[in-house]
Design a protein around this nucleic acid. Structure first.
Lengths: 216, 216, 216, 216
DNA sequence: TATGAATGAGACTTCATTCAT
DNA sequence: GATGAATGAAGTCTCATTCAT
């Protein structure tokens, strides 16, 4: 890493690398201990810098957290939005593939700890809660809602309230994270996340299908 | 209460009027502000005693928290178990009525704050998390699972994995609580809980119905 | 001091004494080092208590300072207002006696350090500046202005703008303090404050007299 | 400049364009915010250099401060001394015109901020206080004192102590600066400086007049 | 039992100063 | 000479916990 690839002096390239090192250290500790219990001194120490250096890059603790969220979550929502816009799969398949991909690339990773963190501490940090709600929750819901609308528009899904249904579809995914990060350690009946998701998607797609089953 | 006298943990043995007042005050504040942000001075003030008195009954803040959870959480589930056993309604109707009743009698009340609290703080209280998982999560899931099995047995529901489906059915209910106690204050698209539940139940019942829709 | 005169336990009477001990310590240090340079830990140490104890009695550093000002300055302005209201001396004599008394009881004492402090640091602490301006500067000026008006009303002084003149009359007194607390240590031509004040009062009274001197 | 090359203090020897830019920037910020609240980073930024560069020219913050005072304050007094020596106006008129001119050319300008600054921060810099006292305060007072003596010599003023009176005459002028730079922002009863000065000069000249008013 | 004054460790944040480049 | 990233001491404020009464 420290090999001088370009003409910049080492300490200047250092400046470019610093924020990422700090964000990585902060992500680790926020996920591990939560927001309030994470001490900035520890973040700095893990990144191999001093306390004061943090403040060269982030105005304060909350801004550091926002930067972590932006760098890790907000960014990938954009990609999902883009990929949905260009897909020509059936809405059922699209819903399934997006959910499974979301699980692989987010829910099953360390990043999901940020979701758990926000659910746990948002009441104590209203500004963070608002930020997260706007940048993540609302956008995530909107993405799913637009997928529902796509399915209805294309005659694949029956008519439903896309806002309510997207909230319903997001709930088990969030819960999966909460379980993983909360009760999993003490849960003897481990639920297999992939089986859970597949079962849920099956059930949801049946529930969304155009022609109601006989006798409903 | 149901526990033999000698097996009671020490914190429970001293129970008389005073500790109950403290627990009530602590419940209010923990639900309102979370664990870390609740100051013992405020708990004492609300209970009308001095800060020092708290320490006569609870060794420290964590023990107070544990006592609050233990004292409040287990009660409702037994009733639900009993009422299900005696019902002769269709499983669809039973599922719907139990969920709506659960919302009215638990989800919409202050007690639901304990669910949010447990989800938020369980990492800090592993022992408590296990207790909660066993006494609440598992029993709640088992109750729903037995309802699914009842429906399958009676030919009302198609064959599914009752454990997975019960986890799926519980998720939106828990999420409803999390939203109510977390992002609701800053969420502009307020979701009506009853509409949400009804939509979810409709969708789930369709997804559980015996005859799959044409073309599925 | 600690002899139990009344029925209160010793530590409880301590609570009554504390604020005064803290205010005394704070006055010492504020005067000696200024507002910004005074560390609360030092105030606490001088009062023989711990850092945290300060916060039992004063919300923060600024409130502590305000309390010091209230306890030492605001309070004595009230007395001066009262004593002026009841005096039947000539306005000239009243002006002179009030000024000399002010010097003895305030300007020449340690308290005057608070005036110097406020002039020095008000720009950095706008809230304190406003407080001091309203509670001390304005009230002090108003007191002198009302004395001017008294003199004009009783035909002792010529017609002047009482607001401007009171500002003028206050200026040398304040400057006396600034000198005493600023350049005195290095000023070789020490000015005798009493002579200075008398000269100033003589000059001012001549300047205020009803009949202008011949040839003016 | 007028000093022989070798006797210049080291900091002065390096003077070229850069230090002047730094001093100008420092003057701005010291006047605006005071000593303690001025951040060297801001000084550097305003001068268009980096923080480190400051330390090439000034040993530390205090030395920078001293340099600013030396560089800005001493100049004007010499001019006033010269202009008084050549005037043949009446001493009353001379006093009035010098005071008004002083206000226009110094008191009302940004430079006056240095006076306020010196009064505010001198306790933290005893060496600087002495310098300022000798070079500014004493010389200013002596100038006014010689004007009083001129008036007495020419039979225009009654016999007074010129040292005391000059101190008295300087006080409101300094106070005018202190007010302008201190409480003006929060003072609702804004005093017009020119009116204030005129009132003060009127009053003082009456107080200095040869023939005492009838009944004094 | 009950009180509540007192404690003191600990967290965030600022900024003068240094130093490798 | 010039840079600007990095440092770390210092200061305010909080609050769980203790203990003399």
């Amino acid at each position: 890493m420290e090999v001088p690839i370009d003409s910049k002096p080492r300490w200047e390239r250092r400046k470019d690398a610093r924020p990422q090192e700090l964000l990585a250290a902060a992500l680790d500790l926020f996920v591990e201990r939560g927001f309030a219990s994470t001490r900035l001194e520890d973040v700095a120490k893990r990144a191999g810098v001093s306390k004061g250096t943090l403040y060269l890059y982030f105005e304060n603790k909350q801004e550091l957290f926002k930067a972590v969220v932006r760098d890790n979550i907000v960014h990938s929502i954009g990609e999902a939005e883009a990929s949905m816009a260009t897909s020509d799969a059936s809405s059922s398949e699209l819903l399934r593939s997006m959910m499974m991909q979301w699980w692989e690339e987010f829910g099953a990773t360390r990043l999901a700890g940020l979701t758990k963190l926000m659910m746990a501490e948002n009441n104590n940090f209203p500004e963070l809660a608002q930020f997260y709600n706007e940048e993540v929750v609302q956008r995530g819901n909107a993405l799913i809602a637009s997928l529902i609308e796509r399915g209805m528009r294309r005659g694949e899904f029956r008519q439903v309230d896309p806002v309510l249904v997207s909230a319903i579809l997001c709930a088990p995914m969030t819960m999966l994270i909460m379980w993983t990060h909360s009760f999993l350690p003490c849960d003897v009946n481990h639920i297999d996340p992939v089986a859970y998701l597949n079962t849920f998607i099956d059930m949801s797609l049946r529930g969304l299908q155009l022609t109601p089953p006989v006798g409903a």
